[in-house]
Design a protein around this nucleic acid. Structure first.
Lengths: 228, 228
DNA sequence: CCCATTAAATGACTATCAGTCAGTAAATTG
DNA sequence: CAATTTACTGACTGATAGTCATTTAATGGG
């Protein structure tokens, strides 16, 4: 039945159109200030139709955030292409996360709500499950790579790959959140270079986890990067 | 004029009563779900009265959060009492932050909104300024202590005390935020011990910043703690 | 003690917005 | 072409942040 297939395709398209409209509004205003009427207008649909495709404003918000998640995953895949050495791939991941932040700040910003347990309660189980699946892909990639580093003797043998992944992520995420603050508290009032702080944090943590062999290889690639 | 003074005292009391009522409701429901009518009922006042004392729901929310800030500051002061050695005081700070999280999780949770630039726009300049002043006291304490560590040769001479403070805070904060998530994603699905991860992160970062002398003293006090 | 003045508090009211649902329009089918 | 299914609409409901004219209480001078 070609018609059923076409209809499904069109339905999927409509879903995407709605997400595109929502994205525009959420990027401009954030979750709290954006309204469903605005989104409906941007999508050239009635508000009622939005609710045929998404259960709530919060679900729609997460649907937009998922786009960011997919972009990040693709950037991570590119940063870890198999022709590179393990150490390059690991350094590449940290760089890719920062590039994601710089180039897709609107998406990065949307993630703030993920940690909020009150927000979780306003979201459907379905959508939460989709998010968790997407997240898992990314964690698997990072953790797998760190495990490979451990196996190759670049990282301490007693390092837990999962712990290491969390620590690296936590650092980067928290410092980038500070960078994203629009007030001038840290940059002007505290006269702090947050980008340098981020680099320093990554360096401290990565080197703290590495074996002598790992550090040698890590410094070698950083040398090359700096001379380029 | 004793009457004017009494009136001012009563006004201040009323302000505190309102914050106490708001605290109860915000702790239970979070910013988005709590309503000003509920808070008014808890305060045994009409909603209009709340607005005589606070400009908006968000301002009132921050007034509650400031209580948490003050508790944290007091805990930090206690953790850094002058009779202790510098290394003990620095280790004490990290522990105190974790204790604040464990014992005052409701307050900890409220801070999530501080990073949200959309939230900043919904809050009065006055309140934002009060927050910044409170924040500054805490940063000054932490940064001053790390600077002392540098001066005493416990930390690398080329370490920037402000950067170090941010990195330590960023780590702890981000991992504790994960701990606070009410879903079981990290603990059960990923089988991760987040408390151990936090300890590991602190250890990596602190040791990465320390001189040999610093590490010796740090290990000495950790030894004592473990045997207690 | 009484009344004018000031200060504090009230709650009905407005505006806004998330979410619903009875009804309409369009596409499909037989 | 009529019946049926599917997609969409927008007026409506209920909830809630914030306002403001009015009421209530306290104060102080006469």
């Amino acid at each position: 039945m070609g018609i059923i297939e076409r209809k499904e395709r069109e339905k999927e398209q409509r879903r995407e159109e709605i997400v595109t409209a929502a994205e525009k509004i959420f990027f401009e205003k954030g979750l709290a200030i954006a309204t469903m009427d605005e989104i409906a207008e941007a999508a050239e649909l009635s508000k009622g139709t939005l609710y045929l495709y998404y259960k709530s404003k919060e679900d729609l918000y997460l649907a937009v955030a998922m786009r960011g998640s997919e972009i990040m995953y693709k950037m991570f895949l590119e940063a870890t292409s198999p022709e590179k050495s393990t150490i390059e791939r690991i350094a590449g991941l940290a760089e890719a996360y920062y590039r994601f932040f710089k180039q897709n700040r609107d998406y990065f910003r949307m993630y703030q709500y993920f940690d909020n347990s009150q927000f979780h309660k306003q979201v459907s189980q379905d959508m939460l499950h989709t998010c968790a699946t997407n997240d898992q892909k990314i964690w698997d990639l990072v953790i797998g790579l760190i495990q490979q580093g451990i196996d190759e003797g670049l990282f301490d043998a007693d390092l837990d790959a999962k712990q290491a992944a969390i620590i690296l992520w936590a650092n980067g995420n928290a410092i980038m959140r500070l960078m994203d603050r629009e007030d001038t508290y840290f940059t002007e009032h505290m006269k702090l270079d947050l980008e340098a702080t981020l680099q320093k944090a990554y360096q401290l943590i990565l080197e703290g986890m590495m074996t002598k062999k790992g550090k040698v290889k890590y410094h070698a690639i950083r040398q090359i990067e700096e001379t380029v």
